[in-house]
Design a protein around this nucleic acid. Structure first.
Lengths: 228, 228
DNA sequence: GCAAAAGTGTTATATGTACACCCATGT
DNA sequence: ACATGGGTGTACATATAACACTTTTGC
């Protein structure tokens, strides 16, 4: 077979999909959004939010559309993880899937809309049985997320414009699933120029109040330093 | 359009390819293998080694086959970099391409076979004009290679079973395109348990001779520590 | 005896980690 | 005055970076 001739012959019969590993932060821990499979194959198992790519759609666009369709969320920061392409990975037919991952605040989701689609949140350390090769997808996405969160400001999308250090730390502890020393955390944070301390305090979580900070994207773009 | 129905309707018309960014080590520096485009579009430009995926072929298999077809090389360590999927990235038709990268010794290539395919090696810091989005592919692959080489033993595939430290260091300097301090390099190397010093010397490169080492894959598999 | 490559240690700096107490406030 | 969460500094271990001289050997 002259593979090079496929453009003419249209012999290639492979479908291409995206699967979204959507991590939601809720109750100070990570959850992952899954859909219950009501039909064969793998009926009864759970699977990732996925869909096929449209003919005129950029890959990233497709991921965002799929995410939007099933969750109503827009403007979510999504990153490609990798392509999964074992020939037999999906018994319904040959499919290559490119996994994307997003990290969001679960509270911003419309829970009704999620239920409509038969989707449900699961804590990442207690996932149900997943269909196809979705376990590997989730694992590679978690690994990536935990690495990225320490080197880039992606987690800041989950916080409001103004936030306190304890809030940020709780977020990190939840994502990383480990507790961090607050003095060390603050020291590192102070080395990141993009964090700017405001004169304001947030009084909602304690009597004393905690100073509010913002993340200055321009400063970050300049020195790119981020390490938490 | 109900994207979910594609399995039935066969409406998706997207071809899927792999592109291989093959880095060859030669004369103590990195080169990249490119093919001259003799036909439109982008006639006269150079492009990566690529090909379409077979219907029953694992993605990794496809990458290895394409590499083999165009270079004769087998058992090369290849890693997926990422998928490129802009809707208009290839003017010939909608294609999604998954990039793979390999690092090899140029001297192990059959140069005649390469020329047969109109391919040629170029130093990575002096590439010709590339077709499509191949520049981004090369850049992301170089970045990844330089990172991986420091954290994993991938570069050891380029050395014979027994090798000397100066050989290894020259290899690293070539790949990273920077010079390394030999004392620091040796210290780091000694911390990696998988490197085992032999009683033998290689006398071919100096009068004094340099001790030979091997890389013990089993030991590496155990502690996984690798940092150079 | 000299040219050429192999081999060796110390110091300074930065980063990571462990750890315990005082502060400000509302009740 | 006490309970609650916010805030602070120091000591130790580890990793990184810079730097110059001695060793071995063939010619």
């Amino acid at each position: 077979m002259r593979i090079e001739s496929l453009f003419d012959q249209q012999t290639q019969q492979i479908k291409i999909a995206v699967d979204c590993i959507i991590f939601g932060f809720n109750n100070n821990r990570l959850e992952c959004l899954l859909i219950h499979r009501g039909a064969e194959p793998q009926k009864g198992k759970w699977s990732l939010i996925g869909g096929f790519i449209g003919n005129d759609e950029d890959l990233d666009e497709a991921a965002n559309r799929v995410l939007f369709n099933l969750s109503g969320l827009e403007n979510v920061y999504m990153e490609q993880v990798k392509a999964f392409g074992k020939a037999n990975r999906d018994p319904r037919g040959r499919t290559i899937s490119i996994s994307y991952t997003a990290l969001i605040l679960r509270s911003e989701y419309d829970d009704d809309r999620i239920e409509e689609h038969g989707a449900k949140w699961f804590p990442v350390d207690n996932l149900p049985e997943l269909a196809f090769d979705h376990v590997s997808m989730v694992h590679s996405a978690i690994t990536r997320l935990r690495r990225r969160v320490r080197n880039t400001p992606i987690a800041l999308n989950l916080l409001p414009e103004k936030f306190t250090i304890p809030q940020l730390q709780a977020l990190y502890e939840g994502i990383l699933n480990e507790s961090l020393d607050k003095r060390n955390f603050r020291r590192k944070l102070n080395q990141i120029s993009a964090f700017v301390k405001l004169d304001e305090k947030d009084m909602s979580a304690s009597r004393r109040g905690a100073f509010l900070y913002t993340f200055d994207q321009d400063r970050y773009n300049h020195d790119q330093y981020f390490n938490l």
